[in-house]
């Protein structure tokens, strides 16, 4: 029964949803062994260890430091690497988030151990960790065999659905071999996005708009639709971010964000291959486009042929109604 480490990502003192996904994925790999979580944050974060226990962390290794109000790549990587090498950890799971993509390969390199990133499935075959991950802009799934342990993986946000499974969650203090004050790389500021805005990676529902919304102002219709869902975020195509209608960080696709929400609603989006690369793994896809030949309809589960400016407000009222009953 192997012990598995899960890195519990936080930002500004709050645990992120991907942390619970990492713990859930770690639990599956532990198959009865213990899940150890690592939680690094500003003073006060230790109080949140219980949240990790709820998802199955038997032990939570906590490091509090004022510098952890921002991400501190070198210090956290050193601490995680030391913990992995000092304990009987067979595998470590990170989120393939902006932070995890930075952190996990650093830890792998320090430990000289294999890493598979952006993993959507993982299992043991004896001592070998076998992991599936998308490549070639999502068009090919590679099955990777990690032939040494400890093995590291980062899991694609949304690929492992967080499930509760309460455990003891005994807190232990995590030593910091590198004081963040002595790190060479310093995160000087975390610039919060619009507070009201749910992030694309966290959202279960994404409403995305393209040039078919006609002008920047009409994205308000999508904001309202997203609000009607309640747990939704608004994304965009590159055509739209290039024109400055939406910030670059909202871009979904080959060169933007890769997302897999439960529901993806594409409004006025043609379905260019580079856009599909970022969202084709969504569980359910809805397309609204006035051209019935638009390629987006080929990947959509449900389509409505029509004018976005007419269909979206109608959809917003219908969703509001439906959620009232729910």
């Amino acid at each position: 029964m192997p012990n598995i480490l899960a890195f519990a990502e936080s930002r500004g003192g709050d645990i992120r949803r991907v942390a619970f996904e990492a713990i859930t994925a770690a639990r599956a790999l532990a198959s009865g062994g213990e899940v150890h979580a690592v939680l690094c944050g500003p003073p006060g974060i230790a109080a949140k260890a219980a949240e990790l226990a709820k998802y199955g962390a038997s032990v939570v290794h906590v490091a509090e430091h004022a510098a952890f109000a921002n991400y501190a790549p070198e210090s956290i990587a050193a601490a995680v690497a030391q913990l992995v090498s000092a304990s009987s950890i067979r595998a470590a799971v990170f989120a393939a988030s902006a932070q995890g993509k930075d952190l996990a390969p650093r830890v792998a390199a320090k430990l000289r151990v294999p890493i598979a990133t952006d993993v959507i499935r993982a299992q043991w075959e004896g001592e070998t960790l076998v992991a599936d991950k998308p490549g070639y802009t999502g068009k090919v799934i590679a099955t990777l065999a990690l032939t040494a342990t400890p093995a590291l993986i980062s899991v694609r946000p949304g690929a492992f659905v967080a499930a509760e499974s309460p455990a003891a969650g005994r807190a232990e203090t995590l030593a910091l071999p590198l004081d963040p004050a002595n790190a060479r790389v310093k995160v000087t500021q975390t610039i919060a996005g619009d507070n009201a805005k749910l992030d694309l990676g966290e959202a279960r529902v994404i409403v995305a708009g393209g040039r078919g919304l006609k002008e920047a102002k009409n994205f308000e219709l999508l904001e309202t639709l997203a609000a009607a869902f309640g747990n939704a975020a608004v994304g965009a195509t590159r055509a739209v971010t290039d024109d400055g209608w939406r910030p670059h960080s909202d871009q979904i696709g080959q060169t933007g964000r890769l997302v897999s929400p439960d529901l993806y609603i594409a409004v006025g989006i043609s379905g260019a291959i580079q856009h599909l690369a970022g969202m084709r793994t969504s569980r359910t896809i809805v397309a609204i486009n006035r051209d019935k030949e638009a390629p987006i309809f080929k990947v959509a589960d449900y389509g409505i042929v029509g004018d976005s400016l007419e269909v979206v407000p109608a959809l917003t009222s219908a969703v509001r109604e439906a959620r009232k009953g729910a």
Binding site: T143, T281, I285, F297, G303
Partner: peptide, 19 residues
């Protein structure tokens, strides 16, 4: 320490429909 054992195309999305 890591090899690619297999490569596969993701399952096709079932054909959707225009409602």
């Amino acid at each position: 320490r890591m090899t690619r054992r297999a490569a596969a195309l993701p399952p096709d999305r079932a054909a959707g429909r225009i409602v």
